[in-house]
């Protein structure tokens, strides 16, 4: 089973048992997000708009590339791929 590594920003890790980085199953980015939300339901409103689209202050990078430059949510994932979830922060 493919187990990419997913990395969470400080703004989000509260919703995933305070973890920064952990493996999560998923053969695509979409499937990985589904699995994350299934495991941590409190993530749902933070990742997705009420209509189901991904929120637009959110960015996802796979091995350093924005998924917009890959295949979006259909971007395939393989073992040990590094998936970074990144959210805008205003603090200064």
């Amino acid at each position: 089973m493919d187990m990419p590594i997913v990395r969470f920003p400080a703004l989000m890790k509260f919703y995933v048992d305070n973890q920064i980085e952990f493996p999560c199953m998923g053969v695509t980015v979409a499937e990985l997000l589904d699995n994350l939300v299934a495991r941590y339901p409190a993530l749902q409103p933070h990742l997705f708009e009420p209509g189901g689209n991904m929120r637009r202050h959110f960015n996802i990078f796979v091995n350093g590339e924005h998924i917009r430059e890959l295949n979006g949510l259909d971007t395939p994932l393989k073992n040990d791929d590094k998936v970074i979830l990144m959210v805008s922060a205003a603090g200064g």
Partner: peptide, 20 residues
Amino acid sequence: CLFPEPPPRGLVPSCAEGGV
């Protein structure tokens, strides 16, 4: 280009709320 829209109000805490 990176953040087309700001987060919905209340979803992202500030440093005054969340600390730094």
